[in-house]
């Protein structure tokens, strides 16, 4: 008994140390973002700011204002687009049999394993010939398309957990596939939807490469702008860190308020069927 308590204590100590180690960069970013230029040069990055100031935030925000707005539009558009389309694909593939249905599913989901880098050049050419280079709409389109495979897979799995008799029941009750989806499937799988929404929001918000390649000065998302900040304002660590914090806030808030859904969604039983 005493021995197992000791093991447990050591285990917690180890975990605590690892957590501290893992959070150190975030701590460093936070303290640095609250220091003045002079203090950044003279103190240890992990030390607590002597006279905390929000000036770096002001500077970072004035630089990132437009890119943050771009990011928000791109992320909202891309998330809604990919989740809506992926959900419909997943619903159909989980509940209706048709010719070559498995092949269609395979072809859609193979997109998950496609690396970003492999499609950059054709993507750039497509977006440019559509006249959407350096536009928020172009980035929304790219993220929507790129998100569909993962969303389709996730929704197919979630909808597959619903008893198949539920959809069959609705059909024989005289409800067509659309009505069945909106009135029965969607309301019974709210956690699943929230899970995929958070997943897509986070991936698109944090994404850099598409923004770099098909975004431009007007449509640049905040990730790209932050990257540029590091290059243009040499050694202004406090402003860069303030920018990082600004970029991290939406995702952090999302996790704090909706994280429990995400965990429940990733585990089994995300579907509230009787």
């Amino acid at each position: 008994m005493r021995r197992s308590a000791l093991v447990r204590g050591l285990l917690y100590l180890g975990l605590l140390l690892l957590t501290v180690f893992y959070l150190l960069p975030l701590w460093g970013a936070l303290t640095t973002s609250l220091k003045t230029d002079a203090e950044v040069d003279t103190t240890n990055p992990l030390s607590f700011p002597q006279r905390p100031t929000f000036e770096p935030y002001g500077a970072a925000f004035s630089y990132l204002r437009r890119p943050l707005l771009n990011s928000l539009l791109i992320t909202l558009g891309g998330t809604l687009g990919s989740v809506a389309l992926g959900a419909m694909c997943g619903y159909v593939l989980a509940n209706f049999r048709f010719k070559y249905d498995n092949l269609v599913f395979l072809l859609i989901t193979v997109g998950i394993f496609l690396p970003f880098q492999a499609i950059l050049i054709p993507l750039f050419q497509t977006i440019r010939s559509l006249g959407l280079y350096d536009s928020v709409l172009g980035l929304i389109l790219a993220h929507t398309a790129y998100g569909i495979p993962m969303c389709t897979l996730m929704f197919r799995v979630f909808y597959g957990e619903l008893p198949s008799s539920l959809v069959k029941q609705a059909l024989t009750d005289g409800s067509g596939p659309w009505r069945t989806y909106l009135k029965v499937v969607l309301p019974s799988t709210k956690i699943a939807t929230v899970t995929v929404l958070i997943f897509q929001f986070t991936s698109i918000w944090n994404e850099l490469l598409f923004g770099l390649v098909i975004g431009g000065p007007r449509s640049m998302p905040a990730t790209v702008a932050l990257n540029n900040l590091a290059g243009t304002l040499a050694a202004q660590w406090n402003v860069q860190m303030a920018g990082s914090m600004l970029l991290a806030i939406p995702v952090l808030l999302l996790y704090i308020f909706l994280g429990r859904y995400l965990i429940r969604g990733y585990m089994a039983g995300s579907v509230t069927a009787t």
């Binding site: 008893p163 008799s165 539920l166 069959k168 029941q169 609705a170 059909l171 024989t172 009750d173 005289g174 409800s175 067509g176 009135k183 029965v184 309301p187 019974s188 509230t272 069927a273 009787t274």
Partner: peptide, 19 residues
Amino acid sequence: RPQDRNVAMVFQEYALYPN
């Protein structure tokens, strides 16, 4: 299509709409 057949079905697992 099933929705146009005017048949009423009862499944073993009841298939009540949980929402």
